[in-house]
Amino acid sequence: MAINEEQVKHVAKLAKLSFSDDELTGFTDQLGKIIDMVEQLGEVDTEGVPFTSNVLETINVMREDNAVEGWSRDELMKNVPEHEDGFIKVPAIIDNGEAGA
């Protein structure tokens, strides 16, 4: 097994996902198989081979620094789940206490 449940929990935390204990077992098994599959790359000799992140040869694409009209706040708020007085509203950073922060 290429990955254990503790590692999967750690990765889930990084990815801001959570799994129930049952799901964790299934996901660990599936991820382990997928990781075993991708580990076949280990057999390829890549000594000195450059890394490709993008097939295009363009780098540092710049645009003219011109001011353009932005979006109206009303439009931008259209899809926001919760907002008030032009601000996006989210729950308190820490747990809602009795004060109902």
Binding site: I3, Q7, V8, V11, A12, L14, A15, L17, F27, L31, I34, I35, V38, L41, G42, V44, T46, V49, P50, F51, T52, S53
Partner: peptide
């Protein structure tokens, strides 16, 4: 998302993401 986060995470980046980018070149 999990596989990608794993491939990019500390300690695994070179063996997975970097290796894949090199084989991509080949």
């Amino acid at each position: 998302i999990m596989l990608g986060t794993f491939s990019l995470s500390a300690g695994y980046y070179d063996a997975y993401f970097k290796k894949a980018g090199q084989v991509r070149t080949l």
